[in-house]
Design a protein around this nucleic acid. Structure first.
Lengths: 111, 111
DNA sequence: ACGACGCCTACCCATGTGGCTAGTGGACGA
DNA sequence: TCGTCCACTAGCCACATGGGTAGGCGTCGT
């Protein structure tokens, strides 16, 4: 059973992403995101990002500032900075721009 | 018809999110994420970047700061900033991170 | 000659970034 | 119970970013 709170968080982060439309369970979607074994692009390196870090990374990829990330996720700017710093460390990046580019290169982010 | 690549991207980003379970079409999900029709990004031929701007963009994609861009291209930091500002305007980006991500989405940058 | 464009330089200033440090609380496995 | 991890919060400070403004020079087309 998925964590409803996390699903809500993912839904709220993705709600404004261009090209995505969230629908209810009873609505007919155009397509589904499904787990296709082997078909999903897998990260090149064994970089383990936590759920929160992925949320922050997705927002970074939209060009969000720490302040905007904090607002979107309902956390303080300090916490947003903390997660950004963690991403820089895990992705071996020197800046948020480098982190986004690097994540795209190794398959953690796709455009 | 949704773009399968977009579905793969979302799936790959969400695949490792703790508490989130990707299910097959026949399974009962708690929530759905779908791609809106006609929203898949396509390379825009309308954006014309000059040679210098492409050089700066490539360096941005490596996470370079304005100072590093200036050093690499043998120009002043003022000029580097000028080109970054031009890129932000042409790519309709709010920051250098957004510019890199947007350029990747529309096919100007490849990772 | 003139205008447009690309490239370049400089300055000011408000805001953002990132490194560093320090801390709390919950969940989980040994 | 304890250690580890995750998520979160807070503050300081040097440096970077980005918007705005102003300007010069070379090239090219009209």
């Amino acid at each position: 059973m998925a964590d409803p709170a996390l699903a809500d968080r993912i839904a709220s982060v993705l709600a404004d992403v261009e090209g995505l439309e969230l629908v209810g369970k009873d609505d007919e979607p155009d397509a589904l995101v499904v787990a296709a074994p082997g078909a999903v692009a897998e990260p090149e390196a064994s970089i383990a990002l936590t759920g929160r870090e992925l949320e922050v990374l997705a927002l970074l990829a939209e060009g969000a500032s720490n302040k905007l990330i904090a607002r979107r996720l309902g956390i303080s700017t300090h916490t947003a900075k903390y997660h950004v710093a963690s991403l820089l460390e895990k992705l071996d990046a020197v800046s948020r721009t480098d982190a986004v580019a690097h994540a795209a290169r190794i398959g953690v982010l796709h455009f």
